[in-house]
Design a protein around this nucleic acid. Structure first.
Lengths: 219, 219
DNA sequence: ACTTTTTTGTACCATTTCGCATTAAATTCC
DNA sequence: GGAATTTAATGCGAAATGGTACAAAAAAGT
């Protein structure tokens, strides 16, 4: 798809975010909310168990529109996963950046994680990366790349946290930030899995608390 | 299925493990190996993406035989999962029972876990519980029960390990065996996920080593 | 008003999927 | 050898699946 003449060269104004006066029949859906619905389905049922009919029903788009907007099923899955990752990142990035004590930062991160994993009308939704993407990762290189990115991104964010905390003297000298970061990620993963098995929030919070105590040293 | 007259009442001998002289045409397959093949498929592709044709081809049984031997697809899946769990348990139970120092026991457990997760001709197979069963767990109560059993079984086994170690003085007084057990399980879960994304064994071993150092205190 | 462009909606196709009905084969019991 | 029994093998059928062709609809440009 060679895009020429997409930007009107005379437009001195910044591209208006709304009503760009498209040419043909207007869309009957909003791509963003449709992608959100698709994400919900894929996340609940996985790639194979989600049919185009399901997606069509959930998004309100008929199949040709779906296809036109997002490409085939696999592309839609990948776009959904991208969307999930960027949402998850957005929900956590502020906390990771924040300049708060280690324990408090961890508590907030895990609270957000539990919110994400436990929400959902038809049961807890778990983590897209852990629950469905990792399964596809063996056979699909593109998805595998995204999963690996997601995993290392989380490791790195935690790693920065712990390194920062160590510099501040919040951790003993012997502490290894990299190992602690992996343990912090592992705790994310274990609660994602348990959430999916409908372990109640209370228990997950207890697991998180215990993990934080081990990682930070007892309060 | 009311089973009467299954045990010949005159049989004073112990049931012969082979050649019980069944009545009709002999089976062309061995149920155990067939179930093993089915397990491999389900584990690699998950429930929905594994078709009866795939299963038929892998086991060498045609569909009616499959159906007769194991019931429908869902039953076969559940039987496969049961088989997986009992194999995994068998591979680990000796180590959990063994009377070795904590660190050594952990090292051996994780070595076995990596063996299980990384084996497979068409890529690493990961953990059945984590990869495919947990996905089904939201919607299927029976599978959910099994997943929960698997999770708590692992927690308990690790818990006994750490409690034992603490009694022996291998852990500091402040150590909480339950929290450590959850972290040990979490480490199992995180390497299962990463294995599925083809993270090389070296890296997984490094993660395990770091986790053990944190849990046991540095060597 | 007419053309152009973009999207919708219906319908269709080829394939796959699960499950089962039926027939043929292989073995034991009498 | 023949009846009974258990399994294998073939194949059918209804439903679902992913994908697409095609015409109608709704907007903007001329």
């Amino acid at each position: 798809m060679v895009q020429k003449s997409k930007k009107p060269p005379s437009a001195a104004k910044i591209e208006a975010p709304v009503a760009p006066k498209r040419r043909g029949r207007p869309r009957a859906y909003e791509p963003d909310v449709a992608l959100g619905k698709a994400l919900d389905l894929f996340r609940r049922d996985g790639f194979a168990a989600t049919s185009l009919d399901d997606l069509s029903a959930a998004t309100g788009m008929n199949r040709p529109s779906l296809y036109g907007a997002f490409g085939d099923k696999r592309e839609l899955y990948i776009k959904s996963y991208q969307r999930y990752r960027s949402e998850a990142r957005a929900a956590m990035v502020d906390i990771f950046r924040a300049d708060a004590p280690l324990r408090e930062r961890l508590e907030r991160i895990y609270r957000i994680a539990l919110d994400i994993y436990l929400s959902g009308e038809s049961g807890p939704r778990g983590c897209f990366t852990v629950m469905t993407a990792a399964s596809e990762a063996v056979s699909d290189p593109d998805i595998r790349t995204m999963v690996l990115e997601g995993l290392t991104e989380l490791d790195k964010a935690f790693g920065i946290c712990f390194r920062h905390a160590k510099e501040r003297g919040e951790l003993p000298d012997g502490a290894d930030p990299a190992s602690l970061a992996h343990l912090a990620s592992a705790t994310i993963h274990t609660i994602a899995i348990r959430a999916r098995a409908r372990v109640p929030r209370r228990e997950l919070e207890a697991i998180v608390k215990g993990a934080i105590d081990v990682m930070c040293g007892p309060k």
